[in-house]
């Protein structure tokens, strides 16, 4: 879920419909009319219908219901308070201090996670695009974090940050980052860095895989030509590699940003949003509101707000990309 859609998304975005030549001829020939009707209107849907039905009933209908919840009061623990309340939830949201804290945390969480994942992933992809001994094994091992279930990554890193059984606080104390070995996730100031580090660990392989695929599709002749012309490695990188990677980078970073902003598992398991909401991001706030307080109306309101923010972001990035490409 959400883990690797990039390639396919991209592929479809780049060439949404490959060949539509036959559509004009559709109503014409009467002899073939019936079979064309069959081919274009019926047969594809025989293969598609299970997927459409499931997505419709399990995702789309609940999505609409969810949006309608944001205009209702639905508290499972307080069944008498149920009913339509108009924009009351949104008014509450606007004056909810925790919402604004969570919004700010969402920004930093996403910003630092994506930045580190991207630069470390790019570095790894560049390394993997060279030749060295034992590359296949190295690649398999270095991609392994990506296969680790998220709840387990979260627990493992929570343990690593625990001074009783984890080495990290002791190392950080030895390096002078901490005064004494304590758990940074118990201290509101640095707490968010715990889940961010876990997220970086988990997400670097993904960026590396995507960028490596893009690197491997750059024609080798370009590098040969550059070498003949006496280009330095840095020139080769900035003049050939980066321009070729740029479209892939743009789309991957955008999708990853959205995905990470939605990604609640790590924080929920590692800190539960605490201490004092210092690691609460919008998606964990949605989940805790729904799961612990069973206040479905308010949870849906936060979700709608998050969706709106992400939509604005996506539109902005696409607009920016269009502008930049024009110039």
């Amino acid at each position: 879920m959400g883990r690797v859609p990039q390639r396919c998304l991209r592929k479809l975005a780049v060439r949404p419909v490959t060949a539509r030549t036959d559509t004009n001829a559709l109503p014409g020939t009467s002899r073939a009319g019936r079979s064309l009707y069959w081919r274009y209107m019926v047969e594809p849907f025989l293969y598609l219908s299970p997927a459409i039905v499931l997505i419709g009933t399990i995702i789309l209908i609940p999505l609409i219901i969810g949006i309608s919840y944001s205009f209702q009061s639905i508290e499972i623990l307080n069944p008498f308070a149920t009913g339509w309340v108009g924009f009351e939830n949104y008014v509450d949201l606007w004056s909810d201090r925790r919402f604004w804290i969570a919004l700010e945390n969402t920004f930093w969480w996403t910003f630092w996670s994506v930045s580190f994942q991207f630069f470390l992933g790019l570095g790894l992809a560049l390394l993997l695009n060279t030749h060295f001994f034992g590359k296949k094994l190295f690649q398999a091992l270095v991609f392994l974090p990506w296969a680790v279930p998220t709840f387990l990554s979260a627990l493992t890193w929570a343990w690593l940050f625990n001074p009783t059984i984890g080495p990290l606080p002791h190392w950080m104390a030895a390096l002078g980052i901490l005064d004494e070995p304590y758990n940074i996730m118990g201290d509101p100031d640095p707490a968010l860095w715990g889940p961010i580090v876990a997220n970086i660990w988990f997400g670097v392989p993904f960026f590396a895989i995507t960028l490596l695929a893009a690197l491997q599709s750059i024609p080798g002749e370009l590098y040969e030509a550059a070498e003949i012309d006496g280009a330095s490695p840095w020139q080769t990188f900035t003049k050939i590699t980066l321009p070729f990677l740029a479209p892939m980078i743009a789309i991957t970073v955008m999708l990853r940003t959205i995905w990470i902003a939605n990604f609640a598992d790590l924080i929920f398991v590692m800190t539960g949003g605490g201490p004092a909401n210092s690691t609460q991001i919008l998606s964990t706030y949605i989940f805790t509101t729904a799961f612990r307080r069973l206040d479905f109306g308010f949870a849906s309101t936060i979700a709608v707000a998050l969706l709106a923010i992400l939509l604005i972001y996506a539109v902005f990035v696409l607009w920016l990309r269009k502008r930049l490409v024009k110039i």
């Binding site: 995702i59 219901i65 969810g66 919840y69 999708l255 949605i286 979700a303 709608v304």
Partner: peptide, 16 residues
């Protein structure tokens, strides 16, 4: 469906 927060439908799914 790959882009929006799946958590958004957690409440409706629970009720259904």
């Amino acid at each position: 469906t790959q882009m929006f927060p799946l958590l958004m439908i957690i409440a409706p799914i629970y009720k259904i």
